[in-house]
Design a protein around this nucleic acid. Structure first.
Lengths: 230, 230
DNA sequence: CGAGAACAGAGAGCGGTGCTCTCTATTCGG
DNA sequence: CCGAATAGAGAGCACCGCTCTCTGTTCTCG
């Protein structure tokens, strides 16, 4: 936000802030959000634990920073997946997007838990996170809007109610100004289905058999593409 | 499990175990899983914190007991929802089941987070929980099997792969011995969509507008019923 | 350039946590 | 009735997040 004056002190501050964040990220990946310890980070960085509080006012603030980074990482992965196919290849973009989502989640389970699991801090999702969090839904909505613009349409779908229309109103305004009612409903469903599947898999709710998650997810994604008329 | 000998000591033990569990449950509902404190429970019950460990070997064990109760409560709510309609009224059973799920989750957000959010203990979902956890998916699978038996069929659906078939194999054996491939895929999708929606709502990922969750969920449930051919 | 303000780091300490160990009192089964 | 099993209490350990105070450094500005 702030351009940061180029004083030696400001540079050192930026570097140490980054170092703390990196160390926290590493610890998060190792032991998970619940066991993330400010004191341990300080020990790793060979500094007094109290000094860390010069950079992050609380453990929750540190976690919030990690959450934002996680949202951005995920957003990037999803956008990259979307970009693996030609713009007109809607189905390719969809599967890329979906694979990007699950691939990132499987590779970063603790980060995924931090963002899409139960809220860890006292609650109150910080306002700072919404911009980063919106990247995924924006990518998905854009794809759906592109499908509609290309004359596609989903399988038989109920008309959207006020609720659905209201839910995408904020995003719709600056992403796309016309979105089919049916696509709104199907889009929200696909969104929930994708995250539902990934959450159920990562949080240990898939059947304990020898389920091939990868293959199962592939079928799911293809079916959703069919339903979306891609 | 054990018939429990009727000694005064055994009775007292059972009562205190129950009291601890109840107090823990109340605390869980108030402050959430992360802030649940063995010491606080002991204070509430006016006993030494060390005494609690005579009943639950660790905080995680206590949480596990709460998880099992939560699964059972949810299972009961879902089964009750399913039972609000006549056995042959598949659509009524479906909406009842779905409303039971969300209704319980909204009424018990911390319990829902404990079960379907990110795993709180070190990981390793205890084996004890699976029987209770299976109640929901059993109810859903039974409904889908009943639909198939009644000659219904879902909208155009891809054939199930080995993955899907394997995933329901353990349940299929004692719930229903023949289940359509298409219904397997659609059933798993509906399962993921339902939980995905509830999780996204409860964990704060629904769009920050004035979204009427209730109405949105109703539309979703109806659409899923359509897709399932109910 | 130099003075005063702003900042960074360290250390001690507070109140909290989960959990263990030891000691005593009670209740059980043979 | 007596020895063994059990229950409770209390002290204590190692950790946690966080605050406060003190010192040294680096900045800004007259």
């Amino acid at each position: 936000m702030v351009p940061a004056p180029r004083t030696a002190r400001a540079v050192a501050r930026a570097e140490l802030t980054r170092a703390i964040l990196d160390r926290a990220k590493a610890q998060l990946a190792e032991v998970g959000p619940a066991a993330l310890s400010v004191r341990q980070i300080a020990r790793d960085l060979e500094m007094a634990s109290s000094a860390v509080y010069r950079y992050f006012p609380s453990r929750d603030a540190l976690l919030t920073a990690l959450i934002i980074e996680a949202y951005d990482d995920l957003g990037e992965a999803v956008e990259a997946g979307d970009a693996t196919a030609e713009r007109a290849d809607l189905r390719g973009r969809w599967t890329g997007l979906a694979r990007g989502l699950r691939g990132w989640a499987v590779a970063h389970p603790h980060e995924y838990a931090l963002t899409y699991g139960s809220p860890v801090p006292g609650y109150a999702a910080p306002q700072d996170t919404i911009a980063s969090a919106a990247r995924v839904s924006t990518a998905l909505l854009t794809l759906v809007a592109d499908a509609h613009a290309a004359g596609r349409s989903p399988v038989a779908t109920r008309p959207a109610t006020e609720a659905e229309l209201a839910s995408i109103a904020p995003v719709r305004s600056f992403v796309v100004d016309e979105l089919d009612e049916a696509y709104t409903v199907r889009g929200l469903m696909a969104w929930a289905t994708l995250f539902g599947n990934v959450s159920l898999e990562l949080f240990g709710h898939m059947y304990r058999g020898v389920l091939d998650y990868e293959a199962h997810y592939a079928t799911l994604v293809e079916q959703l593409a069919d339903d979306l008329g891609l």
